[in-house]
Design a protein around this nucleic acid. Structure first.
Lengths: 231, 231
DNA sequence: CGGAACGAGTGACTTTGGTCACTGCGTCCG
DNA sequence: CGGACGCAGTGACCAAAGTCACTCGTTCCG
């Protein structure tokens, strides 16, 4: 198992270039946890116990409103770490985390991680870099929420999905949704119904062909134009 | 002048507890700039040249949409630093900065700051702490934009202002606005007209007494109740 | 003095976002 | 088999947000 753990550690930016001995020292401190799809890793406001690294699956970081709505802040895949910050500043988790798919997660206790950072100052610099990109992403979300419509955000999301996992075909680019409309809605900060409606509308306008969770993007260029207009 | 510079440096969390010699070494590298109210320090997308520290006045960090709307991300007062991040990761500024009031600002070039961090690893830890609180604030903005109404955000802003600079009087707490409705709108992510209308409405409902930029909060408890409801 | 320029208030309207309630379709399982 | 459940689609509303076009004061300055 330590074999596997080290392989993951090498894949995370925070610990990418450590020596053999450093690596196994770290690996010894790491524990392994499994979470089923939908399971909660921690809730907003919980005291922070340590640092998480995604080994397999996807973890969703989100805010929950008292009315029951969710707003996704990040979706982290294999190799990503999260909750670095509360580990450092000792505060509570600012958001909740749940498994978007069945996931394996590595865990390092707060104390162990802090000690490790003290011994390896360059890791602290890595932390800054990781946190930095996280900050940029959050600014992007704020920009979206404040300047764009649900329609534009949905288009942007579709474009990202086709980019990431689309396969070309005769009629256009095919994409398969791996999550429910509910989940999509939480990612772009709205509700299920609006996702449904906007998808229908995009289909009616000829940009898409929707069949359940299979989507064929028929007019990629047109979509991009729609997204840009009045941003 | 070095006297003054060191005094400011001591007040910023990043450099609070340095020794005398460290401090004067740093102070020698610092330059001083003045910006008039409304002046632009840098624009989103500019290459990052260095770190800023506020000496006097207030600096507004904001996003600008292509339609001309603004969304404030932070307002930094004396003792605050900003743009720490791009200094580290070498990226461009993710947002623009302008002076909300006439301001004096200290500036450290990227290279000097990086060298200084390399020599003083504990400063890197401070950077993480500062960036951490910034991240929490951004998450707060996202939460507000995604879950609350303009009305609730305006109330929250008023409550913050009375907290910060309100003076009790016979009829309630007096607050003086130092910025235009336009500016307030940018802070809560909406437009001038909605600020105006919502203020009128809050007055009509008996929570406030508005006279130009003077506001008397007549029912603090009531406002808090309004803010909480359906959050 | 006269008139830009700016900030504020407001009526009338449109668009967008969101809610509620219900239908229909699979799938999973007792 | 049949019903419970989760997910998706949709019509009918309603409320919030935003736009446009004006008016009215101030202030600032040539």
């Amino acid at each position: 198992m330590n074999e596997l753990v080290e392989k993951i550690l090498r894949k995370t930016p925070l610990f990418a270039n450590l020596t053999e001995t450093e690596m196994s020292a770290l690996a010894a401190r790491v524990s392994n946890r499994r979470f089923d799809r939908g399971a909660l890793l921690f809730s907003e406001g919980d005291a922070c116990t340590g640092l998480f690294l995604v080994a397999t699956g996807k973890i969703r970081i989100f805010k929950l409103s008292s009315a029951g709505r969710e707003q996704v802040l990040a979706v982290e895949g294999p190799g990503s770490s999260f909750a670095e910050l509360p580990v450092f500043d000792g505060g509570n988790y600012p958001a909740s985390a749940s498994a978007l798919e069945n996931a394996e997660v590595l865990f390092i206790s707060r104390k162990d991680f802090q000690n490790f950072c003290r011994e390896h100052p360059d890791v602290a610099l890595k932390v800054i870099a990781v946190v930095g990109s996280r900050l940029r992403r959050l600014v992007g979300i704020i920009e979206d929420l404040s300047f764009t419509t649900v329609r534009q955000r949905l288009i942007a999301l579709l474009l990202r999905l086709t980019q990431a996992s689309g396969t070309p075909s005769k009629e256009g680019v095919r994409v398969e949704l791996t999550k429910s409309h509910q989940d999509l809605a939480a990612e772009i900060g709205t509700v299920r119904e609006l996702v449904s409606r906007n998808l229908s509308r995009l289909q009616a306008e000829g940009f898409l062909e929707v069949d359940g969770r299979k989507i064929i993007v028929k007019d990629l260029a047109g979509l991009k134009r729609e997204q840009a207009s009045s941003e």
